[in-house]
Design a protein around this nucleic acid. Structure first.
Length: 258
DNA sequence: ATGGCTGAGCTACTCAGA
């Protein structure tokens, strides 16, 4: 079973690239973030034509997350917790694999820049609330996969020039510590777990030729609970969609579970 | 280098992203 996560930066602006990706990569479940639309304007039909059912937690203009799935998923939950501004940043579903019930959690963590503003405080509050929620969920089901745009650069190796980001909301030590706190509940950052020394990015800014220069950062992640680690066969950052015409600034990360 | 580029809402320009 293949599960992917991709911040698409508008589902409607990206629909052709998304359809192409579904065809080329054929994930069983695709978690998308930043769909930037209300549910009523979501392109359900064209996605259904590609063989995928859509489960959407949208919002006008900003944020928004969704699952696209060709396998049966259920227990869709858009009310995991209410965040400070009522933003659509988390959706959950359950999927069965090898008689294990796995909880999939699709998140879009607040960016938090610039620091010394309410946006940064919001990011910290959001992460604290999320950590608390995950603690509770683990008591009910130890099989959890969290995927999405975490807006966290975990380590120096995960950004092209870490010195430029020491006071950035994506790399500030107190934010990275929260990421670590989450992992310490019983997860692995599966990309780093399976690639100890490798440099790979999931985001390249549209500006200043960042893609061409490979000025990127690894901020889209899959956290896999320890109970599932032995079943993860591969993890892959698929750079192809980032090189296409009219791309998202993020590219998908993919895992395969036996 | 607080710039650069892209999308939504809307139709001039701001907000947000990272």
């Amino acid at each position: 079973m293949k599960i992917s996560s991709w911040n698409v930066n508008s589902v409607r602006a990206r629909i052709e690239n998304i359809i192409k990706y579904l065809k080329d990569s054929s994930p069983d479940v695709l978690m998308i973030q930043e769909i930037k639309t209300e549910d009523k304007n979501f392109p359900y039909e064209v996605i259904k034509d590609s063989g995928y059912e859509s489960y959407v937690f949208g919002q006008k203009s900003y944020n928004g997350v969704a699952f696209l799935s060709k396998k049966k998923i259920d227990k869709i939950n858009k009310n995991s917790f209410k965040d400070k501004y009522n933003q659509s940043r988390i959706i959950e579903a359950n999927i069965e694999n090898k008689s294990k019930e796995i909880k999939l959690i699709n998140i879009y963590v607040p960016n938090g820049n610039p620091i010394n503003t309410e946006k940064y405080e919001y990011k910290k509050i959001w992460l604290n609330t999320f950590i608390k929620e995950i603690k509770n969920k683990l008591m009910k089901n130890k099989n959890i996969i969290i995927g999405g745009d975490f807006n966290v650069i975990p380590e120096e190796i995960d950004v092209y020039n870490y010195k430029k980001y020491e006071n950035d909301a994506l790399f500030k030590l107190e934010i990275r510590k929260k990421f670590r706190e989450l992992i310490n509940l019983g997860f692995q950052d599966i990309y780093r777990f399976l690639n100890k020394e490798k440099t790979d990015y999931t985001f390249w800014d549209y500006m200043a030729g960042s893609w061409q220069k490979n000025y990127g950062m690894r901020i889209d992640h899959f956290l896999v609970s320890n109970s599932l680690l032995s079943q993860i066969k591969t993890v892959n950052i698929n750079k192809k969609p980032r090189g296409k015409v009219k791309p998202s600034d993020h590219t998908p990360i993919e895992i395969e579970i036996s």
